[in-house]
Write a protein that binds this DNA or RNA. Structure first.
Lengths: 175, 175
DNA sequence: GCGGTTTTTAGAATCGTTCTAATTTGTTAG
DNA sequence: CTAACAAATTAGAACGATTCTAAAAACCGC
């Protein structure tokens, strides 16, 4: 785990702690997963991943932890109605994304026109709303998918898992 | 129906026509409703409204018409995962909205920093994506809800319906 | 009016998410 | 170590929005 990830996990941990909840092993693992991927996993993907370490983990626990993180302002939820919501645990503050409408990948974007928190304030004044967050996403076909459009030979890339192997299949299975 | 609305209905009509589908009475009514409200109705609200004229209308028809309009690029779908999607039939091109997280109202916004189609092109080049649309929304508490926060006496405003009365309850009920 | 196509309908099915009640785990005091 | 209590977790039911399906109804050109 690199430094940035480590640090991010620490942030999430202490945020959850000051919320008054315990950092259980499952929760700790989820923080780790969320902090170390830029793939914006869905609840299901997160579930599959935690299960590699704690196979008895239920989906309810995953949603429960996500809710806590939302409450703590430590996760950004990207809502989709046509598919599962996606989560960004690395950059919990509003920021724009590039969404591929073909392969469903989501990339962080460094906003060209980013208003940022400053601009939210300005807009709040201008509109009379008390604005708390914003969402900006760009939808299109990502470069990889564009290539494959004309290439009938390349099979779609297999989905890599989000984190390295659990130590062994027997060991941590029943925490 | 004012001029702008009339005109918008015409646009939608001809778009649907060139898609090769019939403009049935139900569909015509839906266009009218969509063109004449700025309240960004959900499929359900739309359904309730069409039912005032054609009480036998099923929800499937509403979704079906919405799909046609999407195909024709004549409606903007605002996706929400926690509640029903909302639709903007007046301005089908991407544009920003103010979303009240308390009363769920949605207002069109005139974008302060609007990139617009021009900027989508620019971004497409910059990112390598073939971008087709964008979404920008601001979430917060609207002025009306802010007032009511401290006012325990004001009852929430009753939801007005989207369009004027159907002529009579008996007449057009069974098209 | 007739045959063929399109539209509409009611209700079933689906999918992501939330809820519920029961069980397990963890903690603290004795 | 153990009883008693609180917090976390589980499996599965429930839910709500949307999509699908098969059958009925409406429409069209002749």
């Amino acid at each position: 785990m690199d430094h940035r990830t480590q640090q991010r996990v620490e942030e999430m941990r202490s945020s959850l702690s000051s919320l008054g909840v315990a950092i259980t092993r499952r929760r700790a693992k989820m923080l780790e997963i969320l902090a170390s991927t830029d793939r914006h996993p869905s609840a299901n993907e997160l579930h599959a991943e935690v299960r590699r370490w704690y196979p008895s983990t239920s989906l309810a626990t995953v949603y429960n932890t996500i809710d806590l993180l939302k409450e703590a302002g430590q996760i950004l939820e990207l809502e989709f109605s046509a598919s599962a919501n996606r989560y960004d645990g690395r950059r919990p503050a509003s920021h724009p994304h590039l969404v591929c409408i073909s392969c469903q990948s989501i990339e962080d974007m460094d906003d060209p026109h980013d208003p940022g928190a400053r601009a939210l304030d300005r807009l709040s004044h201008a509109t009379g709303y008390r604005l708390v967050r914003q969402r900006t996403d760009y939808y299109g076909i990502c470069p990889a998918c564009q290539l494959q459009e004309y290439d009938t030979t390349t099979p779609p890339a297999p989905d890599a898992s989000l984190t390295p192997q659990p130590a062994s299949s027997g060991k941590a299975s029943f925490p």
